[in-house]
Design a binder for these strands. Structure first.
Lengths: 203, 203
DNA sequence: TCCATATTTTACCGAATTGTTTAACCAATT
DNA sequence: AATTGGTTAAACAATTCGGTAAAATATGGA
């Protein structure tokens, strides 16, 4: 019994994840999630009392999955230019597996900014080490003088944006050709890293 | 009669804009829009037959306001590095006045990608001229060899992202200090332009 | 002043949706 | 066989919300 218990909860979570990420909290219907999970609507309320709670669970899980993935690398002991390559590579990889996360988070962020922002902060993000490294490299003359915070924002922006704006870009630039867009995305792996490194390298 | 007509319609549009941009189509309530406009709910339906139509009007207006503003400059006859400065400056300016537009568009884009993307394309966006200029500059040796499409995406990403992710960044990096974040945003004007130009200049 | 038209209010309807309840069912455990 | 707990089905309650009808009020012109 317990095995089916665990499986069902997992199935519900997966189904809810699919629906919520695509349609957001208000846009999603409990019935739709039940259908997606192949179960009864009453069972949703049996496992997660309310839509609110189910959503909370999904949102928390999504953040915990997404944030550490790209944060961790920033604190490791790697030469700066190589670190930036690794960061964009891993971050892009994560986004390629979960392309809907950014849009999802952003939308919920508009609904209740303080709550979401708090959850993200609690997710263990720590820019301090990276900032220190950048300042060091500037001292050593490897990196041109710049504000490390802007650099961090730039790095994230360059990775995230193509996923957030995918439908526009795919339509305007690629005439709705999905394969073409995927090709474009995989090019960005290297493109973004060299774009950043070219910009910050001192000469 | 006509004077109050125009004023009321305008009031409704403004109210709907505020609510829709913050909460999206499904997240918004007609009653809330009516309250915001200081009128009765029935009057909304008198001016705009349905929620759908009202939303459509707001969305169209929003796009027409946002898109040409930053597109036009890309086609003008300006030296490339200067053009990038002007682009980031104007684009940032527009976003500073309408910080909610990117998140709004992105969310609606997820709801009905083809419809929205079509509307944007119809808004008169034309990357061809800019792409040609970049290729020319590469030929002339002013710009290092790169894919102009990636450059365009990078330019937009660097401008837009801080507005989309504002609540997170303001909380994590600035401890919810609004003034601090605004300061950061205005720094980006110059920061982004030099970040790009440093990256693409040939040496 | 009085009429016609535009605008506003009030009250309400119907559909959709969340959440609950109840009874039955099934499968594994004891 | 009896028990237990996950599961289903169906109906229902409660609420929210978009939309409408109709009466009331204001406004400008004859």
């Amino acid at each position: 019994m317990e095995s089916s218990d665990v499986n069902t909860e997992k199935r519900i979570m997966e189904a809810a994840r699919v629906v919520f990420l695509r349609k957001g909290m208000e846009g999603s219907r409990m019935q739709e999630i039940a259908d997606e999970a192949g179960i009864n609507k009453a069972l949703l309320h049996y496992y997660f009392r309310s839509k609110e709670r189910l959503f909370e669970a999904i949102f928390r899980e999504t953040l915990q999955q997404a944030v550490p993935d790209f944060t961790s690398i920033l604190g490791e002991d790697i030469p700066i230019f190589r670190k930036i390559e690794l960061f964009t590579e891993r971050y892009n990889e994560m986004l390629r597996r979960n392309p809907l996360i950014p849009g999802f988070v952003i939308h919920e962020l508009n609904r209740s900014p303080q709550r979401v922002a708090g959850m993200i902060k609690g997710s263990g993000i720590n820019p301090a080490a990276f900032i220190r490294q950048i300042l060091d490299e500037i001292d050593r003359g490897e990196v041109r003088p710049l504000n490390p915070l802007h650099l961090m924002v730039n790095m994230i922006a360059l990775c995230v944006f193509p996923f957030v704006a995918r439908p526009i870009m795919q339509h305007i630039f690629f005439d709705d050709d999905e394969a073409g867009y995927n090709e474009f995305i995989s090019e960005r792996n290297e493109e973004v890293a060299s774009f950043i490194n070219n910009s910050i390298r001192n000469r």
